[in-house]
């Protein structure tokens, strides 16, 4: 027996979410149907709201509800110190450290030919435009240490260095509380490379 059409539609849409298979989608759909009507409407309007009010910041391309975003508006943050990250969630992670006082640039992905993502599909051209306007003193490449993140950092370094910008890459090394003998050789080698005086 098939479900009535509105339920089928709901299941189908939910199943498009990452990590949600047909079974989970069904469970979620019935959960939504059983919850108080007001709560379901709150969820629906939260989705619509987020979609209509959130856009890219015209400077850093992070998600924002006001353009420029709160970080790019903040005069206390150094506009000539730019950190390039893959995703908006990376901005949140870095902000939690309270260590970085510059501004961000969000690429929205990393180079991955397998998935059909090249530099043109990322906010690279936007980064170049922005750099001509702010003349940065340092660009920190903080893409992830995945293969795609590394390749993206190499690509950007190759692009930016000839323009005489100071380009740096965040360090890789031991996690806090990590045991040396459980660490893979590549991480150890990087940690040794990045050693410093005490």
């Amino acid at each position: 027996m098939l479900y009535p059409e509105p339920i089928q539609d709901l299941v189908q849409e939910l199943a498009k979410l990452p990590g949600v298979g047909p079974k989970t989608a069904q469970r979620l759909a019935f959960f939504l149907l059983n919850m108080p009507k007001g709560e379901a409407e709150l969820l629906a309007s939260a989705i619509t709201n987020a979609r209509s009010r959130i856009r890219y910041c015209s400077e850093c391309f992070n998600f924002t509800d006001s353009d420029p975003c709160a970080i790019c508006r903040n005069a206390a943050r150094d506009p000539s110190w730019i950190m390039v990250v893959e995703h908006p969630k990376d901005v949140i992670a870095m902000e939690k450290t309270r260590e970085f006082k510059g501004r961000y640039h969000v690429l929205h992905g990393a180079i991955s030919p397998m998935e059909g993502i090249g530099p043109d599909d990322l906010k690279v051209r936007e980064l170049l435009n922005r750099l001509t306007q702010v003349s940065p003193r340092e660009i920190v490449l903080a893409t992830s240490s995945s293969l795609e993140g590394e390749a993206t950092a190499l690509y950007l370094a190759r692009l930016l260095k000839p323009m005489n910008y100071k380009v740096t890459r965040i360090a890789r090394g031991l996690p806090m509380g990590g045991d040396l003998d459980y660490t893979d050789e590549m991480t150890l080698a990087k940690a040794l490379e990045g050693r410093h005086d005490l």
């Binding site: 180079i111 030919p113 090249g118 530099p119 293969l147 590394e150 390749a151 993206t152 190499l154 690509y155 190759r158």
Partner: peptide, 8 residues
């Protein structure tokens, strides 16, 4: 971008 994968 081929050579951005070469070092890896």
């Amino acid at each position: 971008i081929i050579d951005d994968f070469t070092p890896l």
